[in-house]
Design a binder for these strands. Structure first.
Length: 288
DNA sequence: CTTTCTGTTAGAAA
DNA sequence: ATTTCTAACAGAAA
């Protein structure tokens, strides 16, 4: 489900919903989700949410009372956060259908519940159990942060640095872009989209991408993800929050999932191959 | 029925 | 140091 735009969408909603809420109770339905931490509940109860930050696809929650305690949360493939208020209205979540949204929590895939004041609750659902919600100290949080490269979406992103660095890689350009320690936030969808917009085939070796192409990739990687954030990400096509927003970047996808269909630019049939171990979509005409 | 696929990424192996 | 491959898991699709 989530790449940078989807995680950012969730972050914005959670930051707004959780701010000032105090954790009154904790229920762990799947031990592994909290990294089998037996202190998880006792360290959280009584804490008040201060902010929700993000680096790459990793969410970082901080608290008012304690500057040496954080929650690190990763959605991986199927993780979802749901915030439910006292009226049991779904305020935020991710990658789910409306029919799921109106059903009661917890359900079979709910791995964690944080019960908040004023009858609110935060649920973490994760069908495939790859995701996690774990506690970290300041040092642990900083260590986790340090593993990420810069985000192409940021104003400070140095495209010239990116251009130089990309062209030292000897792997497929797609593999390089998926490396979170190189640049943070891209996943399978946005890599394919950024490479289409740049006219570069995913399987091209990164060190054979021209300077001009590399600059284009750096620019388009940020551009496509920023555009997606503007419409609430790609995974929310069935999602409507209490503000009535229903993000949908799916309509804007030019290659991802469009194998066998006509390229929106030239009409050539979009191909799907395996590259960097992932399903990979490209236009044989537009991308060289 | 079995096999393959899936929006991620640690960690092992090369 | 880099790069490739697999496992972690569940369910839908073929």
């Amino acid at each position: 489900m989530p790449e940078l735009p989807e995680v950012e969408t969730v972050r914005i909603q959670l930051a707004h919903a959780l701010k000032g809420h105090t954790i009154r109770g904790v229920e762990v339905f799947h031990d592994k989700t909290v990294a089998s931490d037996s202190t998880f509940e006792e360290r959280l109860v009584g804490k008040t949410f201060q902010s929700v930050d993000r680096v790459g696809k990793l969410l970082i929650f901080s608290f008012v009372e304690e500057d040496n305690l954080f929650i690190l949360a990763h959605l991986k493939m199927t993780g979802q956060f749901f915030y439910v208020d006292e009226q049991a209205d779904i305020v935020t979540g991710g990658g789910h259908s409306m029919s799921e949204a109106v059903s009661l929590f917890p359900h079979v895939h709910t791995r964690l519940a944080l019960y908040l004041d004023e009858g609110a609750a935060l649920y973490f659902n994760d069908m495939r159990l790859f995701g996690y919600v774990k506690l970290a100290t300041m040092v642990e949080m900083e260590e986790a942060r340090s593993k990420f490269g810069p985000e192409p979406t940021g104003e400070a992103f140095d495209v010239e640095w990116f251009t130089k660095k990309l062209r030292t890689r000897r792997t497929a350009v797609k593999a390089a872009l998926l490396d979170q320690s190189f640049v943070a936030g891209l996943g399978n969808i946005y890599v394919d989209e950024a490479l289409f917009r740049s006219g570069v085939r995913p399987a091209r070796r990164a060190d054979r991408v021209t300077l001009v192409e590399a600059r284009k990739i750096g620019y388009e990687a940020g551009a496509v993800m920023n555009e997606s954030i503007q419409v609430g990400g790609t995974t929310f096509q069935n999602f409507v929050d209490t503000g009535g927003k229903h993000g949908n970047f799916t309509d804007y996808l030019q290659v991802f999932g469009r194998q066998g269909q006509a390229c929106k630019v030239c009409g050539t049939t979009i191909k799907k191959i395996r590259c960097a171990g992932r399903g990979t979509h490209f236009c044989p005409q537009c991308q060289k």
